[in-house]
Every structure is written in structure tokens, then in C-alpha cells.
Design a protein around this nucleic acid. Structure first.
Lengths: 128, 128
DNA sequence: CTCATAATAGTAATGATTACTATTTATAAT
DNA sequence: ATTATAAATAGTAATCATTACTATTATGAG
């Protein structure tokens, strides 16, 4: 893979971002400083970086995909009030889940993802 | 909600279908016998029926939503070989998952869905 | 420095789904 | 039964996230 300035700034944008940005968010963040940047380039590089394992891609039901700095594997929860995405540690799910499913159905599970929905800590506090 | 012939045949199509059809599949199934049927009508009624609790809507990451006859709550697994969707019983997941997540993060989980991927029983047999 | 080709910008296309609007139709009231 | 009203439809256009396409630019090996 050849170096490109665009890929570098896209990678940095994801790494330095606290929230879990969508492709469009990354594009908007960078467009001001890089007016010639193309949305297609953002998509292509985010997917390349995710394939490479440099960042991770979070697929969200019925909404735009989000990208995240690479870290421990974890699940995600989307807050139904503020629409922010939060991390849920891997450890909340028992390790034998795939095995349980195999035992129950005969189908071999190679991967699974859990999409949590709820009210985040912050919104709960506000609501009181 | 007022009666409509279209809603009736759409409902029956889902109930009598063994697989988990997409809106487009339902449309294709019915179009031959009902040439004036509109795809928008299929979508609207599938969603109405799902809201009503008469059928269930299965949201699939990166693919068209699927609909299913109402039954015990359960999760779904999509086979990466044949793309068919199979049921995974609710019981493979421990009941306290939402509570574990709350304990670990402070966020209140109101619902969650698990998307399983793997190789189904049938494809596994074929592969041998 | 030169050249092959990877990566880009900009735009068009895609696919699932929803929105819109004129027309049709179910059903409650006359 | 007739009519009136509002819900439902057909058909089409619009939306939104994403990918595909193509001419141009730029990386980096030789």
C-alpha cells in the first residue's frame, strides 16, 4: 500500500476522536482544512484501514457505520436520547455463547455482534 | 386500522413462508397473482404489521430487512455460504446480560439484538 | 528523472427504503 | 342503498449511505 497524505489525515482523525465518528463526520471534520478532499476517499480509506486492522468499523442497524480507534474488542451501545455510541466491554458476554448456539441449533457460529440500545449514563443524570 | 385486501395477502405471505423473506421477496411472490400491487404498499404494510406485533421485523446488518411470522422471541443467524437466515433460541443468552452491562458501564440497556454469522447445518454437511 | 500504476477528486450509480400525490376504496352516517 | 370522509393504494420521485467509475494526479521503484 502506497503512502497518501489523505490516508494519513483520515487515520489521525479517527485516532484523535473521542466519539465514534461516521464517514461523513470525518469528512466534515477534515474538509475545512483540506477543501479538495473527496468523500469517496474518506470511505475508501476508512474501509482500507479497517481491513488492515488499524481501526475498527462499527456497523449500526439503520444508521451510518462508525469507525473507532483500534482497541480491545468490545460491543457498542447507542443511546436512544443523544444518539451517541458507547463501548460495552467484551466481558459482559459469557465466552461459551457460540458453543451454546451450536449445541442448541447445530449451526456453527463464526462471529457475532451485539447491538445494545438504551439510555446512557449522562442522559440518565440529565433526566433526573 | 381499516381492512385492505393487500394487507391480508401480505400478512399471509409472511405467515406461510418458511424462510424469512425480505420486502422485495414478498413483493415478487405476490406480484404475479396481483399485478397492480405496489412495492411501497408491501413496505408500508410489513412495517405496520410489525408495529402491531402481528409479525416481526429482523434488521440485518448491511442487507435488506427480513420479516418473520410472530413466534417466541429469538435471535437470528445468517449463513455466510447460502445467505439464509436461521433462528437461534433466546435461551442461549443468559438473562442477566443487560444487568451485567449496566454494572460494567453505568448505561441502562433497554434492548439488544445479537446478529450471529456462521455456517449453517446444511452447508456444513455439503462441505464434507 | 522517468515511468508504471496506485490513489485521488468529482461525479454518477446503486440499493433499500421512505415520501409524495392523485386516485381508489372501506365503512360510517344519512 | 347512497353518499361522504378519510384511510389505503399505485406509481413515481426522493432520500441516504455507500460504492463504482473515470479522468487526473502523485508515489516511489528502477
Amino acid at each position: 500500500m502506497r503512502y497518501s497524505k489523505q490516508r494519513e489525515i483520515i487515520y489521525n482523525a479517527v485516532m484523535n476522536n473521542l466519539v465514534h465518528p461516521t464517514a461523513d463526520t470525518v469528512y466534515a471534520m477534515l474538509k475545512a482544512e483540506n477543501p479538495e478532499l473527496s468523500l469517496g476517499t474518506v470511505y475508501r480509506n476508512l474501509n482500507l484501514l479497517a481491513q488492515n486492522g488499524d481501526i475498527i468499523k462499527i456497523e449500526v442497524l439503520g444508521a451510518a457505520d462508525r469507525y473507532d480507534a483500534k482497541s480491545m474488542p468490545h460491543f457498542h451501545m447507542i443511546c436512544t436520547e443523544c444518539n451517541e455510541v458507547f463501548d460495552i466491554p467484551y466481558t459482559v458476554v459469557p465466552e461459551n455463547l457460540a458453543q451454546s448456539a451450536l449445541d442448541a441449533t447445530g449451526h456453527s457460529i463464526t462471529e457475532y455482534d451485539i447491538a445494545f440500545k438504551g439510555i446512557c449514563k449522562n442522559c440518565k443524570k440529565k433526566g433526573e
